[in-house]
């Protein structure tokens, strides 16, 4: 009963803001569900201890205040029985906590890989996320599409420094460590969009290394995959030809226009289906014409320190923007 009340109060508190909470206490997977249960259980234990100890403190402060004319208090140096009790009770509590920890670690451990799992590679770049669907031959960035109810096995790699992959509603963090192969898994039981963000300080724009996970029905996911596997929109007009030339020329040093080119050494994201995404530059800005224009004019004022330092010739600017917007 008490537990339900606290959970209810906590949920109301967290959900008091009008948008749905991005917290793991509002879980969208069994992993975060288990962890939320464990968190709440420990929170209740902690609150009981808190109330008892702070209550005793307040009681003492009120009752034992010094008054004029008080005699000296009894000079009590200790009480062995009491001291044993308040050593043993915490020991029992931490044993209980440890048992619960082990149970939850086991409950959320990655299931062994099997047929039908979705295999992914997540690559951390300063400061954006590359998502490679190695089995499906596609690469995208900053927006991770996964089908609902399917286990997703993730290999985590970094091309530079340590990052940390965290989508609270789906799972806890796993660090993305260069020169080390970490893995994690996800399985969402809820269709929706879930926010994530890099959780290990990785330099200047650590704050603008965001992403989201889009959990969709198998059919929607298949449609998305089919679209991503198509080649990029081919130029039709003269303007588009010119833009295409630029994008496969100078820009190709960092960006690919080939959706099947999975190449972690590319400094920037794959652009083949850029406008199938809703955000860009590490999930930091809405992807629309206005933002794209100001980005291409001066990337450094929007996201200082990022690796994209370019000047686009004035006569090509419009055609490049227009072509990019066709890359759906």
């Amino acid at each position: 009963m008490l537990r339900k009340l606290v959970v209810l109060a906590g949920a109301t508190f967290l959900l008091s803001a009008c948008q749905p909470s991005p917290s793991f206490l509002n879980p969208a997977s069994s992993i975060s569900g288990h962890v939320a249960d464990l968190y709440n259980t420990i929170l209740i234990m902690a609150l009981v201890v808190f109330v008892l100890v702070e209550g005793a403190l307040v009681l003492i402060l009120i009752r034992d205040r010094h008054k004029e004319g008080d005699k000296l208090p009894h000079q009590l140096h200790g009480n062995t029985n009491l001291e044993i009790i308040w050593t043993v009770i915490p020991i029992l509590l931490v044993i209980a906590l440890f048992v619960m920890t082990v149970q939850t670690v086991n409950a959320i451990a990655a299931p062994s890989p099997k047929q039908g799992d979705l295999n992914l590679r997540v690559v951390g770049h300063r400061w954006w996320w590359e998502f490679d669907y190695t089995d499906l031959g596609i690469a995208t960035a900053n927006e991770l599409h996964i089908p609902v109810g399917t286990p997703v096995q993730i290999a985590l790699e970094s091309v530079d420094v340590i990052h940390s992959f965290w989508v609270p509603q789906l799972s806890g963090k796993t660090d993305v460590v260069p020169n080390q192969h970490n893995t994690m898994w996800l399985e969402s039981d809820q269709i929706g969009e879930f926010l994530g963000q890099c959780a290990e300080f990785c330099g200047t724009e650590h704050a603008l290394m965001r992403f989201k996970v889009i959990v969709e029905s198998q059919a929607d996911f298949d449609a998305w995959v089919a679209n991503q596997q198509k080649p990029a929109y081919q130029p039709q007009t003269e303007d588009e030809q010119a833009a295409y030339k630029e994008l496969t020329g100078t820009c190709a040093a960092c960006h690919s226009l080939d959706p099947s080119e999975i190449d972690t050494t590319k400094v920037g994201p794959n652009l083949a289906h850029l406008f199938s995404r809703s955000t860009f530059a590490g999930g930091s800005f809405d992807l629309n014409e206005e933002n794209l224009r100001s980005w291409l004019k001066d990337t450094q004022s929007m996201k200082p320190g990022n690796d994209m330092e370019i000047t686009i010739p004035q006569q090509q600017f419009d055609s490049i923007v227009e072509y990019l917007m066709k890359l759906k």
């Binding site: 034992d64 008080d70 915490p90 931490v94 906590l97 440890f98």
Partner: peptide
């Protein structure tokens, strides 16, 4: 994890000891 839990025990001992010191004392605030 287990080791970290253990640290809670001596820490708890200290907090209780401070409460025990104040218990039925003549507290001057």
């Amino acid at each position: 994890s287990a080791d970290s839990f253990l640290i809670g025990v001596p820490t708890g001992v200290k907090i209780f000891a401070w409460l025990g010191t104040m218990w039925r004392g003549k507290l001057r605030f």
